[in-house]
């Protein structure tokens, strides 16, 4: 899985950190540290984070299942 956060857009609302605490951490007042390559097993948590972000700053791409185009 590949994740990128548009950190211009991110306002450090930390909703992603509640949704997927293993993969998104807020440090200092507003530094978002995130895992850009979470394991496939985290799919549901990452999707929750994407949905929870109030400014739609998180983009994710899942690996295509083997054999798919």
């Amino acid at each position: 899985m590949r994740v990128v956060v548009d950190l211009n857009r991110c306002q450090a609302y930390a909703q992603c950190c509640y949704a997927a605490p293993e993969r998104f951490v807020l440090r200092g007042n507003e530094i978002l540290v995130y895992d850009p390559a979470p394991p496939a097993a985290d799919r549901a948590a990452i999707e929750r984070a994407v949905q929870a972000c109030p400014v739609r700053a998180i983009r994710v791409e899942h690996d295509a299942p083997a054999g798919a185009a």
């Binding site: 590949r2 895992d35 850009p36 390559a37 983009r59 690996d63 295509a64």
Partner: peptide, 14 residues
């Protein structure tokens, strides 16, 4: 905290 090769951008697959 992040491996150099973990930085591949979403979008490359599709």
């Amino acid at each position: 905290e992040i491996a150099p090769e973990a930085t591949t951008l979403p979008g490359v697959g599709a």
